[in-house]
Amino acid sequence: MKAISCLKYGLSELKLEEVEKPVPRDNEVLLEVHASSATTHNLMIIEGKPFFVRLLDSGLVKPRIKIPGSDISGRVVMVGKDVTKFKPGDEVFGVSTAFGAYAEYTAVPEHELVPKPVNISFEEAAAVPQGSLVALQALRDKGGIQKGQKVLIFGASGGIGSFAVQIAKYFGAEVTGVCSSRNFDMLYTLGADHLIDYTKQDYTKNGQTYDLIFAIAYRSIFDHKRALKPNGVYVSAGGPSVTRIFQDMLIGPMVFKRDGKKLVGGWAVNPNAKDLLFVKELIEAGRIKPVVDRCYPLSETAKALQHYGTGHPGGKVVIAVQHSTKF
């Protein structure tokens, strides 16, 4: 089978190669991958930056993860003897915590997958898992979002932000999105009540305050603190910036606590089937939808990740897999 091989750090080192097709373990399914997506975590482990990533889940000198890719959608072609949820032919999507999604086939534990929404394509489904789960868990679980609250989404047009706008509206919030004006039409379509072009207006100094701020893009937490109401909550989606991590984890909680405001920093996804099934139901009910900025073939995975990292995409960047051989 064909797969993206990551044997050295750097996007330029990614190679499309022939590798051995995996054999599923007893609790795994073998998935014919139809699509995956670009994510910050995958970009970090491929580039080995910032350096602490090499200490946490990659190698010091060369990558430990040989085939990247975590968001996944596809069709089951084989199941292990202990698998009970799926059978060959089932269409599924999810988050592969062992990676391996940038390939024609990959083996995934059954508990990491759920049935694909029936009303979207494989490419759209691959745009859903991590982006939607980060947004859902940050707003609902960490932010405690409530009906009628004023919520600001900083980085509203990206893969996570576009879901955050829709999920906040689902919970009955009044939503202000911050992004560049070129994405305004898309976000109004998704339900945003107000939009601010961060290149033209400093939303932390316009006198508006919010019950909940969810920041996907980087700006100082002290700027966001000014825009919070008393007892407001600021939730950070984390990210590769060492400065941001230092502020979120060490300085911010002490500064926020003095004013009765709450900071939840360094937020990362907790992939689980229960939450993904909830997202699936919202998609099938027409309450939320994935937004795909661009779709690249597997052979152009490096270009997809480069665009994701530097192109300010409006929505998710998807990697589609065309199969050269049949199972």
Rank of each mutant, 00 (worst) to 15 (best):
residue 301 T to E: 04
residue 42 N to I: 13
residue 185 D to L: 15
residue 314 G to V: 02
residue 63 P to D: 06
residue 233 V to R: 14
residue 230 P to C: 08
residue 183 N to F: 15
residue 104 E to V: 05
residue 33 V to A: 00
residue 245 I to Q: 12
residue 37 S to Y: 02
residue 78 M to A: 15
residue 165 V to D: 02
residue 104 E to N: 01
residue 3 A to C: 12
residue 250 L to H: 09
residue 95 V to R: 05
residue 203 Y to V: 15
residue 53 V to R: 00
residue 221 I to W: 11
residue 156 A to F: 01
residue 90 D to M: 07
residue 121 S to C: 10
residue 148 G to A: 04
residue 265 G to W: 01
residue 167 I to T: 02
residue 76 V to P: 10
residue 255 V to R: 10
residue 242 V to C: 14
residue 167 I to F: 04
residue 119 N to A: 11
residue 262 K to Y: 05
residue 147 K to M: 12
residue 234 Y to A: 09
residue 106 T to W: 07
residue 5 S to H: 04
residue 183 N to S: 15
residue 315 G to P: 01
residue 169 K to H: 09
residue 204 T to V: 14
residue 65 I to Q: 07
residue 102 Y to R: 04
residue 216 I to M: 13
residue 205 K to E: 15
residue 290 P to R: 04
residue 232 G to W: 08
residue 301 T to F: 05
residue 314 G to S: 10
residue 298 L to I: 07
residue 85 K to H: 02
residue 137 Q to V: 07
residue 293 D to S: 12
residue 295 C to W: 01
residue 124 E to S: 10
residue 325 T to R: 12
residue 284 E to Y: 06
residue 170 Y to F: 15
residue 289 K to L: 01
residue 137 Q to Y: 09
residue 212 L to G: 09
residue 171 F to Q: 09
residue 207 G to W: 10
residue 169 K to G: 11
residue 227 A to E: 06
residue 209 T to A: 11
residue 196 I to E: 05
residue 248 D to A: 13
residue 107 A to R: 15
residue 14 L to N: 01
residue 17 E to H: 01
residue 195 L to K: 04
residue 218 Y to V: 13
residue 65 I to M: 05
residue 121 S to D: 06
residue 20 E to A: 14
residue 247 Q to E: 15
residue 150 K to N: 12
residue 3 A to F: 09
residue 131 G to N: 04
residue 182 R to T: 10
residue 164 A to I: 01
residue 192 A to I: 04
residue 189 T to V: 13
residue 13 E to V: 13
residue 25 R to Q: 11
residue 253 P to C: 07
residue 25 R to D: 08
residue 69 G to K: 07
residue 263 L to I: 15
residue 284 E to N: 08
residue 7 L to P: 06
residue 30 L to Y: 00
residue 246 F to D: 09
residue 289 K to A: 10
residue 133 L to K: 05
